[in-house]
Nucleic acid binder design. Sequence first.
DNA 1: CAGTGGATGCTCT
DNA 2: GAGCATCCACTGT
Length: 190
Amino acid sequence: MPKALDRRFFARSVHAVAPDLIGATLLARGVGGIIVEVEAYHQTDPAAHSYRGRTPRNAVMFGAPGHAYVYRSYGIHWCLNFVCEPEGSASAVLIRALAPVGGIAAMRRRRGVEEERLLCSGPGRLCQALGITGDLSGLALKPPWFELRAPPSAPEIVIGPRIGISVAVELPWRYGLKGSRFVSRPFGRS
DNA sequence: CAGTGGATGCTCT
DNA sequence: GAGCATCCACTGT
């Protein structure tokens, strides 16, 4: 696999990129942490926003890999995805949880909670903690908006079904860092 | 703990 | 008008 988290890293199958993101560090303007939970969404997958074709909302998914796709969830929250695969394949990885590392004071201020455990454990929470909104959708996953660092070593990965969807619920396309207390919900026994 | 329901706004049919 | 890739508060054990 490509070592640097550059455009070539993202121009692969979501099923290759998703597990490779576990253990990587994500920072948004200096605030962020270690990615401990993600989910893969493929264009042929009924749960993917791009499944029914291109619309104004999902247009970024149809663009170049290595860019952020940010959408509003339930009218309240924002969710961050990384666009993957060759351009036009409209597939992405949803970033679901981080272990906080940098800018924890800013996270606490934005989230309005003290407990470190609750700062970035969930797709809506981590966007609030990192100050990510729809304004960042379509931007490249590189400075000055984002910084990504590869994991220092290959972490142990756990796999399970995705969360919060009503179709394709059986597909095991959720990936987590084994033993992390920062995942949004527990994985099954491993 | 588990389960339920409300908030809230936008997208697509 | 329906349905969300969510979170939080509140209920009842």
